[in-house]
Design a protein around this nucleic acid. Sequence first.
DNA 1: CCACACTCTGACCAACCGGTCAAGATTTTT
DNA 2: AAAAATCTTGACCGGTTGGTCAGAGTGTGG
Lengths: 205, 205
Amino acid sequence: MTTTAPARKPTRIQQRNRRAILEAGLEVFSRQGFRGATLDQIATEAGLSKPNLLYYFPSKEAIHVTLLTQLMTTWLDPLRDLDPEGEPVEELLRYVHRKLEMSRVFPRESRLFANEIVQGAPRMAPHLEAELKPLVDETVALIESWIAEGRLARVDPRHLIFSIWATTQHYADFDTQIGVLMDGRDVHKDAAAFLDMLFRRLLTP
Amino acid sequence: MTTTAPARKPTRIQQRNRRAILEAGLEVFSRQGFRGATLDQIATEAGLSKPNLLYYFPSKEAIHVTLLTQLMTTWLDPLRDLDPEGEPVEELLRYVHRKLEMSRVFPRESRLFANEIVQGAPRMAPHLEAELKPLVDETVALIESWIAEGRLARVDPRHLIFSIWATTQHYADFDTQIGVLMDGRDVHKDAAAFLDMLFRRLLTP
DNA sequence: CCACACTCTGACCAACCGGTCAAGATTTTT
DNA sequence: AAAAATCTTGACCGGTTGGTCAGAGTGTGG
């Protein structure tokens, strides 16, 4: 038996309701931002009353922080999966396509992240320093070694990473705008082809 | 003399205070979004009392709408300035550099726009349809004609425009993240060189 | 210097917000 | 089936928010 923390294993009801709350929080926070979202919105979306919601999470902030922490891990996974032994251009293009696919499948997560950063990352700054920064530094070193070996065109690794993030996440974060400008077209299929060409031309030595 | 509307010419005090309010509104809305911003914040930032602020603008929404409307015009100007008679690659690169420069000089305007779009463009959707869409359609036609003449690589014009917006505005909208990852470096100078290379390689036939 | 339009403010209001609480309903354990 | 643990809710609370209003202050043209 664990000592200090009670830490009973969660009930089925707990699992269901906590999951529903996080799902609802993602929906609402990703569109409204932290201050713009209300507990009533989240509770309604989750199919619970407000006091009941606060039975499962101690505060609005706790829901937000839980979502951001969960997000950080899955968000960075594709970057961790770059294979130093692989073919550099193909590895980076695989990363581009994975990021674009995440924009298609998890647009709300992308917007949650965007909202947090645009507003100055008040609740995420520690995560950026502790998790994102070292991982980016590693990746920069890897790309630099590829360039030194002449297997990649000479590009600034940091700005390369920024441009991949920017172009792929754009399809999730600005989907409203894109919807206006691309009515009816198959956005993501064309986007994949375009980004492939963009980064292939850039990176090929 | 104009008839229906009184439309006296604005006093010096009116000019000064309306300007101060819009400046303050830009500062606050661009970081907090519409719902996250409060009239007290804006009033304090503008150096006015809240009732006095509401003497110059009838509501919080009126300030926001005024900012968005003003923004739309200046935001699209660089796109209007593409010269059909110019050298295609150089014209588009000039557009890239102007957009990047706007991210450097007007980061708050960029974030104001980003906030509005991420949240589903509730107050801007009409502007997007009426102003942005026709201008983009024109530009797409221009780029397609350049491609048909063989003066530009075969790229999807719409996704080209998206990628220019995404990469340049990223430096304003995500400046918090970039600050963490680029401590001390001269971000914009390197960004200009990087984006020049990125789009030159893409666009050169 | 006076009349008049313009500018500004403190006090106030109703609606909304995040969060609490006591008590009742429901499920699980024994 | 009773006891215990878990779950749910209506009523409520203090603070905040967008907005109002009557009246006081101020600048200015005649």
